[in-house]
Design a protein around this nucleic acid. Sequence first.
DNA 1: AAATATTTTTAGGGTTGTCTAAAAAAATAG
DNA 2: CTATTTTTTTAGACAACCCTAAAAATATTT
Lengths: 220, 220
Amino acid sequence: MSLSSAEQDYLKAIFAITRIEHRQANTNAIAVLLKTKASSVTDMIKKLAVKKLVKYEKYKPVSLTNKGQKIATSLIRSHRLWETFLVERLEYDWSRVHSIAEQLEHIEDDELLDKLDHYLGYPKFDPHGDPIPTKEGTFPQRDETLLSQLNPGDCGTISSVLQDDESFLEALNQLNLCINQPIEYIKKIDFDQSIQLKINDHIHILSENMAKNIAIQKLP
Amino acid sequence: MSLSSAEQDYLKAIFAITRIEHRQANTNAIAVLLKTKASSVTDMIKKLAVKKLVKYEKYKPVSLTNKGQKIATSLIRSHRLWETFLVERLEYDWSRVHSIAEQLEHIEDDELLDKLDHYLGYPKFDPHGDPIPTKEGTFPQRDETLLSQLNPGDCGTISSVLQDDESFLEALNQLNLCINQPIEYIKKIDFDQSIQLKINDHIHILSENMAKNIAIQKLP
DNA sequence: AAATATTTTTAGGGTTGTCTAAAAAAATAG
DNA sequence: CTATTTTTTTAGACAACCCTAAAAATATTT
């Protein structure tokens, strides 16, 4: 079965909402994520239900069938492998690969993905630290803590970022905050919950909101 | 200005017919190439004319404006760079890259093309021997003769193939007929104009039709 | 439990790109 | 130079995907 880009985007969105953000995939949530309207979502959901890619009952949140889940996982795999390619081989900045990978991910060819995976050396995590599912659909797991939830004195390395926003990633870059960068948590500032942390022996401050979107692998 | 895949395909088709095959781009020729109907072509041509990408007068063949030509050239550049990537980096067989490159070529990002070009080492010809236009839009030139037009005793190397058909390319592969392969032209067989040639000291036969689609760079 | 607010669906419409069938123009033949 | 054939365009329709506005269902408040 061949799916349009739009159909693929809906599957990805439902996956992201239900499996990654652990929220209910109701029409509004999907509409917000895909920057469209709830009525358009209803239309598309019906089509996907006919194709047995989602389970749908009127007025209830939708969920992916096994078939739908498989396709969504494969799209995520594609997206993350292409992001890895763009950063590691074409020397793109990690802040600028998301939108290009959005286009590349829709190219349908299982062999292409396998060859790309092989070429990149079977990476487990993409440039943002997000796990790359295997061909079989399993996601590599890791113990992560949000930077905003560390305690004074905690040390660790940045393992992933939870946003793809270009300005956010660029700003991190300027502080040398990249994946695997060691950091030490100093303290939370009472005033507005900003975070003080040490990077390469320099003290920096991050807003609470930014700290909530950075995941850390703690050192023992 | 952002163009749909369909619009891009039309520009490419008009370029191929007028600049490569040196024929008139009338609605039928375009329809055949794009596997659509003449009436659909008329519709699209009108849209492209409004966007000043083609010059169009009713009942006359269309041609590209400078603007349209620039876009078409850039698409060809994209297609051929991606084909090169697929063969040289992902180890695809040259017979199987065309359809994947058809999808990849539509990704719009000038910087991506430049980075890919740099990464591949600024190749001048793609895996089928077709010239890759530069960023500025100039096509590398070469002296080529069709295999079907050589004379007995002529020696040379295969410089390009004129078809992307999978079965054609696969068959060539099986005879070791790849780009840069040295060959010697033996003779034309009277019976049906088939070509006899020597490849790695072995005699082989090619149909007239296949020989017409293989270009040779003659040795002095 | 009724009134109100929110969410979801339906109804109707727009755009893009395709199609078939018929009309119009151009090319070819006698 | 008229008649016939071929090519091109128009007209009308359809599918995919999106929209707005209104109706229907559900959730929340009092």
